[in-house]
């Protein structure tokens, strides 16, 4: 791995959890205000890319819960499932239902939209975060290969000629 600036690594150690927390807040807030799953997910992708810059793509990928592909797939499944309760009630697919659970002085609002949004968040984070970190990983490999071969282009793999 190429050496990285200690300053960036230190900053990212603080920034990564902070950005993830912010992304979750945006996800939560998006319920009735600007924000939501996609935008929250994008902030999480930014956090993952930053981690990939600071600590290398491998670390960033391993910090995604369940791994990138599974995270995205689980998110997609969550979003797809969120439309099913409406079907059980004889309503069209993806019609969303709201439920409020009274908790003494306050109420806990629950809805299928939240499940949908959470799914979108996971899809965006898993798919795009995984892709960004993976693409950076390609570059790291190229850098390692360039270090191993003194003059790139002279002894690289043969060009595909007709």
């Amino acid at each position: 791995m190429t050496p990285r600036s200690a300053l960036i690594r230190l900053a990212v150690r603080v920034l990564y959890p902070a950005m993830l927390a912010a992304s979750l807040w945006i996800l939560w807030r998006g319920h009735h205000q600007p924000g939501g799953g996609f935008i929250g997910g994008m902030v999480a992708v930014a956090a993952t890319s930053l981690l990939a810059v600071a600590e290398g793509s491998h670390t960033a990928l391993s910090r995604l819960p369940f791994g990138p592909a599974r995270l995205a797939a689980c998110g997609g499944l969550a979003s797809l499932t969120s439309g099913l309760p409406a079907l059980a009630l004889g309503r069209p697919y993806l019609e969303h239902l709201w439920l409020e659970i009274p908790l003494g002085p306050t109420k806990l609002p629950l809805s299928t939209v939240m499940l949908f949004d959470l799914g979108v968040y996971a899809v965006v984070w898993g798919a795009l975060g995984g892709l960004c970190a993976h693409a950076m990983g390609l570059d790291e490999k190229a850098a390692v290969a360039a270090e191993a071969v003194p003059a790139p282009g002279e002894s690289g793999p043969e060009r595909v000629e007709p």
Binding site: L138, D139, A142, P152, P157, R159
Partner: peptide, 9 residues
Amino acid sequence: LAIAQRTRD
């Protein structure tokens, strides 16, 4: 990126 790396072109 993958094409550029495989074929150096």
